[in-house]
Simulated scan of single mutants.
Amino acid sequence: MGELLACGGPPPRPPARAPLPRARPRRAAPPPRDRTVTAWLSLARADDLRVITSAATLVEVIHPRINRPALEWTLSRLVIEPVTDTIARHAATLLCDAGLHGHEYAIDAMLAATALAAPSPTIVLTSDPEDLTALCGTRITVIKI
């Protein structure tokens, strides 16, 4: 998954690495990043945190080789926030303020604007922490996954 936001309440505890039960034959394990996202989603649900992402993120994560059932499972646990005119304009302002421009940063900017519009505290899980930090500064917590 690209980027996720958890908002409201205290930050969840980092996921602990628990061994997987081996009662039946195992399928290939998901990549470590997928297990990390799954653990964060479980913690957020246990802590009653609202987990959101920008609709623009879907453009980034859906591709022909994606594990569609796993993606749909993950998306079923998220609130997908639309990219409204207000979010788009705020994203453009964030890009200008950070001295960035173009499609390379557009999805990150829309996610950043979505994160900043969410109730605090806001945590962003991302594979691209540098761009999110450049766009949001210290107004959100950015965690690399």
Rank of each mutant, 00 (worst) to 15 (best):
G99V: 01
A18S: 03
D97V: 03
R45S: 10
T53R: 10
A106N: 00
P129I: 11
T141S: 03
A46L: 09
D48F: 10
A92V: 09
D85V: 12
V124G: 03
G137D: 11
H90Y: 02
A44D: 00
T141N: 06
T53D: 12
T122Q: 11
A109S: 07
L4M: 10
I62D: 12
H90A: 11
P15F: 06
L132N: 09
D48H: 14
T38E: 11
L71H: 02
L41E: 01
T84Q: 04
C136S: 12
E81D: 12
C136A: 13
A113H: 02
R17A: 11
P14V: 10
T93A: 13
I143Q: 08
A109V: 06
L4A: 04
P69M: 15
P25L: 07
G99M: 01
W73K: 07
T38R: 05
V37R: 04
C96M: 02
D48Q: 10
L75C: 12
V61P: 04
T138L: 10
R89Q: 10
P121E: 10
C7P: 08
I143D: 05
P69N: 15
A106G: 01
L116F: 01
L132C: 11
V124H: 00
P119I: 12
H90D: 09
C96F: 03
A109Q: 04
T74R: 11
D47I: 02
R45N: 06
W73E: 09
A44W: 00
A91W: 00
D131K: 10
A106T: 03
T122N: 13
T84Y: 07
I145D: 11
T36F: 00
R24Q: 04
